[in-house]
Nucleic acid binder design. Structure first.
Length: 555
RNA sequence: GCGCCCGUAGCUCAACCGGAUAGAGCGUUGGGCUUCGAACCCAAAGGCUGGAGGUUCGAGUCCUCCCGGGCGCGCCA
């Protein structure tokens, strides 16, 4: 949080500089305050002078010197303020600033780390939304981990978040699903059938068919059309229930399960399309109805109603996003898709623009593919043939915690090689244990302290200036940086930053642990260190919770 | 052919709106438990950031071209 304080100081000084005529009133203060890579450059550094020098036609070092001069007055914050290099300003933060960090954490409790990026605005995050035609696989797992964690972080950053799963419960895929189950049922009844190549061939279809026959023994006596319809409904509810269960066991729950079919039942498709028609953005050609997507940056126009009279999936999506923005009035919407859908973005963005909305209202996050590695070799997956690793298998074999953590140790736009064997190992190669171990170690420490009759001291009665070793400061600085991390995650939609932060914090804790003792004969110091330990434990637990990973007391 | 994403240490990955000497883990080599949890720590080796130009005070990051990999380019979803 010191970064924010410095930013405010600098912003105030820009105003002052303008008042004194040092800077022209027109300059736009664009600058960063960040921890520099090298320790010699202080705890934080800013490029403000370099940034303003160009605009104001001033010497950057002279400008920097002026800022530094004024900043030195804040001796409560800065031990030293230096001008360096081409015009950077380096800040060496006063020890007593760091030493009061535990007091802040104590005071804010579980709310420590909350920031106000969202200002209470409503935001929707839609993710996974896999077709309910089969079990979730490893790729959906990545989307689930990212979507859920991002949602948790956004609520922590004061957005009012709603998580949503969009169910494609109509259209051709559903018909094929129904027919697949129906055919398997026939087969189970002893009939020889020719199972079509393009139908769902996974073993789970047979299991569903068997369950259906048990429930409705007369199924095959019904007219075929009706039988297929029954099979479809049954398959949909069965598969959806399994998807829901898998996600719950993965730590993911939704606020809404939104049915595509409902868009038609409540005539929202008509409504959305007529809005576009009124604007003159729909036209007929070759018997189909087209949307003028090319007028809004897409490559070409897109069909919304086929010549057959059936609406396309795109028509549903137009209505769905009409619903998101106009019926439910979300301030912002985030759609999380697999990277293979990226070609779809321009057309949906075109819809948003056609609606007269600013493009940024909709953000589409693409999650890159997951490759499965087994023993270091790439394993090919084929959904059609029913050969894939399911999310369920990962939860059962690898565990929720390790799986989520691994998915979150990568940037979303980087493809991920998932090594199942490695993920199963309970060793250092598996980074989740590194962070959890830090937490469990601290839990153990407090058990030990209790055994020795040491209660938790109150922060007011502790001399925090005793936290004065290099390792103390490492931890204090990281603790202070936690809210900044949350902010960065929320602003950039990058949950992996939190994962890396937690790894850093765990590293600093383990380092501390080997170099110092928390409990000693020196009572004042012991108290101070217990306060520090408590703060670290709290932030670790909070961060792990945001990742949807457990923070064990023992392991 | 066109579009999007990626290319960073042997391997898997970081690097916040362009910042100063590009960082971790694994693996390799060598060290560290009579003391709160060794699932830990310390040290060493390891790099022309795929290549070539350009923009500027300054480029892994931005622009152009090339090479290599992935994914798209339906009246499929």
């Amino acid at each position: 949080m010191i970064a924010r304080i410095i930013q405010e100081e600098l912003a105030a000084l820009v105003v002052k500089a303008q008042a004194e005529g040092l800077l022209p009133p027109t300059v736009k203060p664009r600058f960063q305050v960040e921890p520099p890579k090298h320790k010699d450059y202080g705890d934080y550094a800013t490029n403000i002078a370099l940034s303003l020098a160009g605009q104001a036609r001033k010497n950057p070092r002279e400008l920097a010197a002026w800022f530094a001069e004024n900043l030195r007055k804040r001796q409560d914050l800065f031990a030293k303020v230096e001008v360096a290099g081409p015009g950077f300003i380096n800040f060496f933060i006063a020890p007593r600033y760091w030493q009061q960090v535990p007091t802040v954490i104590e005071k804010e409790g579980p709310n420590y780390g909350r920031v106000d990026v969202g200002q209470g605005r409503r935001i929707q995050v839609e993710f996974v939304s896999a077709n309910p035609t089969g079990p979730l696989h490893i790729g959906h797992g990545r989307g689930a981990a990212v979507g859920d964690t991002l949602s948790r972080i956004l609520s922590f950053a004061n957005f009012k978040v709603e998580k949503e799963y969009y169910i494609n419960d109509m259209g051709r895929q559903m018909k094929i699903l129904g027919r697949s189950v129906y055919l398997r049922a026939k087969e189970l009844a002893g009939e020889k059938i020719d199972f079509p190549e393009d139908h769902y061939r996974g073993a789970y279809i047979i299991a569903i068919a068997r369950a259906l026959l048990e429930k409705e023994p007369d199924l095959l006596a019904l007219p075929e059309e009706e039988g297929i319809e029954r099979a479809k409904e049954f398959a949909l509810t069965t598969i959806l229930a399994e998807i829901k269960k898998d996600l719950e066991d993965f730590g993911v729950t939704y606020d809404n399960w939104f049915s595509e079919k409902s868009l038609y039942e409540t005539s929202q498709v008509e409504k959305a399309l007529s809005l576009l028609r009124e604007k003159g953005l729909l036209y007929e050609k070759d018997g189909a109805v087209w949307f003028k997507a090319s007028a809004f940056g897409d490559e070409k126009d897109r069909v919304v109603i086929r010549a057959s009279g059936e609406p396309t999936y795109f028509a549903s999506d137009i209505a769905y996003h009409y619903n998101k923005f106009f019926t439910r009035k979300y301030h912002r919407v985030i759609d999380i898709w697999g990277a293979d859908h990226h070609g779809y973005i321009p057309r949906l963005k075109a819809v948003i623009k056609a609606f007269g909305l600013p493009e940024e209202k909709l953000q589409v996050m693409l999650i890159q593919m997951v490759n499965l590695l087994e023993g270091g070799r790439l394993k090919s997956m084929s959904t059609r043939a029913g050969e894939f690793v399911t999310l369920r298998e990962l939860i059962d074999e690898v565990g929720k915690d390790a799986t989520r953590f691994i998915f979150l140790t990568r940037r979303c736009d980087s493809p991920l090689d998932f090594d199942v064997e490695l993920a199963k190992k309970q060793s250092r190669e598996n980074p989740v244990y590194y962070v959890q171990y830090a937490h469990a170690r601290l839990a153990s420490l407090f058990r030990k302290a209790a055994e020795e009759g040491l209660g938790l001291p109150r922060v007011e009665e502790v001399d925090l200036s005793l936290l004065n070793t290099e390792e103390d400061f490492n931890l204090l600085k990281l603790l202070d940086y936690f809210p900044d991390t949350i902010e960065a995650c929320a602003v950039n939609l990058e949950p992996h930053l939190l994962t890396f932060y937690l790894l850093d914090l765990a590293t600093a804790l383990h380092d501390y642990y080997t170099k110092h003792r928390f409990l000693s004969e020196d009572r004042p110091r012991t108290k101070a260190r217990l306060i520090l330990a408590k703060a670290v434990k709290q932030v670790l637990a909070c961060g792990l919770d945001l990742l949807g990973v457990s923070a064990p007391e023992r392991m």
